[in-house]
Design a binder for these strands. Structure first.
Length: 121
DNA sequence: ACAGTGACAACAT
DNA sequence: TATGTTGCCACTG
């Protein structure tokens, strides 16, 4: 069911190492679509409707350009994404902010992206 | 074909 | 710093 763009997003996100994060916009840029940040978020939200085999995408490592978690949880309930990140060593403040100076993933270069997309992961 | 929908981002107040 | 506004994009009924 997943469209090609979604697959490309998942392929990139799977390369984010544990303990590191990146932004929706950066993922979009790596895919050559600098203005498709919103679509990246849409692609990740679609993960909950996808097959278990696709559940190996570390979506929690993608946050917004301000270094903050974009998923809001109901009041007084722990933020799931924050917990997942803390579990792998990422410091998340109470206001859901993360220090990009310390945890930002360097990302991939076009050569690597090209290789990944060519082999469809 | 087309309007509606977000886990965005950059800018303007 | 905190909201609001506007542009964008892929996907969906």
């Amino acid at each position: 069911m997943a469209a090609n763009f979604y697959e490309q997003v998942y392929a990139v996100v799977r390369r984010i190492p544990p303990g590191k994060v990146t932004s929706y916009g950066r993922v979009a840029q790596m895919l050559g679509r600098p203005r498709a940040a919103r679509a990246v978020g849409y692609a990740l939200s679609a993960l909950k409707d996808v097959e278990p085999s696709q559940r190996d995408v570390p979506w929690q490592r993608v946050i917004n350009s301000q270094g903050r978690i974009s998923i809001v949880s109901r009041d007084n309930t722990p933020n799931y994404q924050a917990d997942l990140l803390r579990a792998e060593g990422v410091a998340v403040s109470d206001n859901l902010k993360i220090n990009l100076e310390q945890f930002l993933w360097e990302g991939l270069h076009w050569v690597e992206i090209d290789d990944i997309l060519r082999s469809n992961q």
